[in-house]
Nucleic acid binder design. Structure first.
Lengths: 148, 148
DNA sequence: GTGCCACTTCAAGTCAGCTTGAGGTCAAGC
DNA sequence: GCTTGACCTCAAGCTGACTTGAAGTGGCAC
């Protein structure tokens, strides 16, 4: 069994984040040592799986749903494929945006707005032709508070 | 000159968003027709440029800074290159995550956790070896309120 | 001239994913 | 047995980009 401090040390998650995950039903503590939460060793992998999900753009709700659906560590394969498809779209979009930025940075036109190429991509962005980004995941905060 | 309703119609932005942008100094109205704000036609391109910036992951503060720096429609080329570099990193990361999801969805191991391949990527995510995503941009809200 | 309704202002609310603060508890070391 | 300090709970706060609600205004069609 692992003390919460051991879990924070090994995963980089803060204690408050772990408490929050428990509250949300994403993880479970198996007991207490005095006040202190105690976890099974498998919590480490569970948290890694959660981190992967977050990195892929799943919300905590979606992740807990997946855990509920499967009962265990397993997840819905169709959902994973769907998310991978999403990511592929996003990657394409980001690539287009990146290229637009590069172009903007290098375009010799005196004002970007005079460059037809630039106007094209910028207009696309303005019309929402660039589909929505929904990604907002896995941000290991700069402050690495391991202890409370 | 364009009425605010014309601007919302042509850009897909809500009137409240436009007011918010004006408050933040990102755009300027040139007058009023009664109460109603009036904009120069160039507002359309300006908004498109803002949308591109948001899509690239710039915050509104960063975008307004760029406008201030350059005075006009122009922007700091170094910043654009830096952001393009960021995007390249992100694209690589997303590609890795996407591959991990695909693998997870297709891996024949009875439980994902038994697949060494899966454990490897999941462990990487858990340790924060997957660097932070900071992208959260351009989300044309589903509700397409054109009018207030 | 009057009714309508899209606009206006301003303050407050929303969402996610935590963090922070106040005030309390308890295992361990001295 | 007493201090210490890392943990606990619960409620409130934070960030960013807006949205929402209440209350007011004014141009335009009739």
């Amino acid at each position: 069994m692992l003390d919460i401090s051991e879990v924070t040390r090994r995963t980089g998650q803060t204690a408050s984040a772990l408490r929050y995950y428990e509250e949300r039903g994403l993880i479970a503590s198996v007991g207490r040592n005095g006040l202190r939460r105690t976890f099974e060793p498998s919590i480490i992998e569970r948290l890694a799986l959660i981190a992967l999900g977050r990195a892929a753009g799943f919300s905590l709700s979606e992740i807990s749903e997946m855990f509920r659906d499967s009962g265990g560590m397993d997840v819905d394969r169709a959902k994973l494929h769907a998310k991978a498809d999403d990511l592929e779209q996003q990657i394409k979009r980001l690539t287009r945006i990146k290229d637009a930025l590069r172009h903007t940075a290098e375009c010799p036109a005196p004002s970007h707005m005079e460059c037809p190429n630039f106007r094209r991509v910028v207009t696309a962005a303005g019309r929402g032709l660039i589909p929505p980004l929904e990604l907002d995941a896995l941000r290991p905060k700069s402050k690495k508070r391991i202890k409370d």
